[in-house]
């Protein structure tokens, strides 16, 4: 039982990171029909902003802050202005392909200008183990889960309890009506991109001490989060959160109790099952589009 609980907590920690990344998929899709295939690389990149700041002499806390700010500017604002806005008017597919190209560009740039090798990454949370009710739990795993939950709660509070959040939701539901009501739709869409920049920055700070900072790390993370978003429901933030946690826990339990060899297939089995039985995702809503 103790081992089971340790596995669930470790799975929750991995799942929490997937969830943060998956929320970004969901946010961008809802507000601007953007599927960002560079989302994994968006998580990889802030780690290198932080390492560059550390190498320049900044203490870790300041470097982390710098990393978050740069993420919001480059991966939020500049991403929207320089790539999404010019491409979106040509349709969703050209934009999706453009984000694929962006993912390759980001990967290769980090490899070229920083290093092809993995780099160690400092952590705010010590890697010690604590005993709790007979269960041995890593403080780092607990910390990752708590930070991720706090981030999600803050986001939910912003969306549900502030005028800006409600305007953002209105834009997501029907941008034309929102515009008639005087809501600055473009600005609200920009806010979602800035939020995505912040979320991937936080995810990067959480995952890099465990997964190491490496130019290629976004591939695995991006794919897992994309699957999590589909499994949970691409058009619902709570779906993305649930999908992330489900994937993290299922992966760990399958590896421990079924087979380590076939653990990689678990997310894909989940994906197939959801597409066959509930195409809108576990918590998503069915959407119809006129073609």
């Amino acid at each position: 039982m103790a081992s089971f609980m340790s596995l669930v907590i470790a799975g929750l920690a991995t799942g929490a990171i997937y969830a943060l990344i998956a929320i970004g998929f969901s946010l961008l899709w809802q507000t601007s029909q953007t599927i960002n295939f560079a989302q994994g690389e968006f998580v990889m990149l802030p780690a290198f902003f932080v390492l560059a700041a550390i190498n320049a002499g900044a203490p870790f806390w300041l470097a982390a802050l710098i990393g978050l700010v740069i993420s919001v500017i480059i991966l939020g604002a500049m991403f929207k202005r320089l790539l999404v806005d010019p491409m979106l008017r040509h349709g969703v597919l050209p934009l999706a392909i453009a984000t694929m190209a962006l993912s390759i560009f980001l990967r290769e740039s980090v490899k070229e200008f920083y290093s092809a090798e993995a780099s160690p990454f400092p952590s705010f949370i010590p890697g010690t183990t604590i005993g709790f009710a007979g269960i041995s739990v890593s403080l780092q795993h607990v910390g990752v889960v708590l930070v991720a939950i706090a981030s999600v709660m803050a986001l939910t509070a912003l969306l549900d309890r502030t005028p800006i959040g409600r305007q953002m939701q209105a834009c997501a539901q029907n941008p034309d009506v929102a515009r008639i009501l005087g809501i600055p739709v473009e600005r609200m869409i920009m806010y979602t991109f800035l939020i995505n920049g912040l979320l991937v920055g936080i995810a990067s700070l959480l995952v890099s001490p465990i997964y190491l900072a490496k130019f290629s790390s976004g591939e695995t993370l991006g794919l897992a989060a994309f699957i999590a978003a589909i499994v949970g429901g691409f058009n619902r933030i709570r779906g993305a959160i649930a999908g992330g946690f489900l994937l993290g826990i299922a992966d760990n339990l399958a590896a421990a109790y079924v087979s380590t060899q076939y653990r990689g297939a678990v997310p894909l089995f989940l994906l197939i099952a959801v597409i066959l039985l509930r195409p809108q995702g576990l918590f998503g809503k069915a959407e119809e589009r006129t073609v």
Partner: peptide, 8 residues
Amino acid sequence: VDFAADVA
């Protein structure tokens, strides 16, 4: 990504 299950 995660080695928790293997280590368990």
